[in-house]
């Protein structure tokens, strides 16, 4: 009954298993293959609601980096976000960084419009133009309770 010895089967089993684990870890878990060939840029936001460490950084929809960390700047009342960008991606000093949502109720990510000025941002530089995430709840509230103008006028229940 032993065409292959038990040891061979175990060997195959363990190897395939480890390959499976490795695949899952690397491919699915987005293990940072950025590593050393990346550089940091910073951006200040008035709100980073929903953004988490590890969320992707995209330019034109393509992933170019990750959110590395957060820091609070209590003087300026802003959150400083550490963005890790792949080396080779050029971002200029008139770039805009915005926190966006993937889909309607998806994860947050940082979208960067790299800009087109002459000055290239160096590692450790700040992206000055930022857009905090839109708070969907606020928006809906404003619409429902009449802060947003419809047809140019305010909607205020009975009045009108």
């Amino acid at each position: 009954m032993k065409k292959y010895s038990h040891e061979t089967v175990v060997g195959a089993f363990v190897v395939i298993g480890l390959v499976a684990i490795a695949y899952m870890t690397v491919k699915l878990g987005n293990v940072s293959l950025l590593g050393d060939d990346s550089y940091s840029l910073y951006a200040e936001f008035s709100s980073v609601s929903g953004l988490r460490v590890g969320n992707p950084v995209e330019i034109f929809g393509m992933e170019v980096g990750k959110v590395e960390g957060f820091r609070m700047d209590q003087e300026k009342q802003q959150v400083v976000v550490d963005l890790k960008i792949k080396t080779g991606i050029d971002i200029y000093d008139d770039a805009i960084a915005s926190v966006k949502t993937a889909g309607l109720i998806g994860d947050k990510y940082v979208s960067i419009d790299p800009g087109g000025s002459d000055e290239l941002l160096k590692p450790g530089d700040f992206i000055l133009d930022t857009q905090s995430p839109i708070d969907l709840g606020d928006l809906i509230g404003k619409y429902a309770f009449g802060d947003i103008k419809k047809d140019g006028g305010e909607t205020k229940g009975e009045e009108e």
Partner: peptide, 15 residues
């Protein structure tokens, strides 16, 4: 979606 939504914590947690 599979690739993007799964994070390393999920995988290590499972193991």
């Amino acid at each position: 979606r599979v690739e993007t939504s799964v994070e390393i914590d999920d995988i290590t947690g499972g193991f």
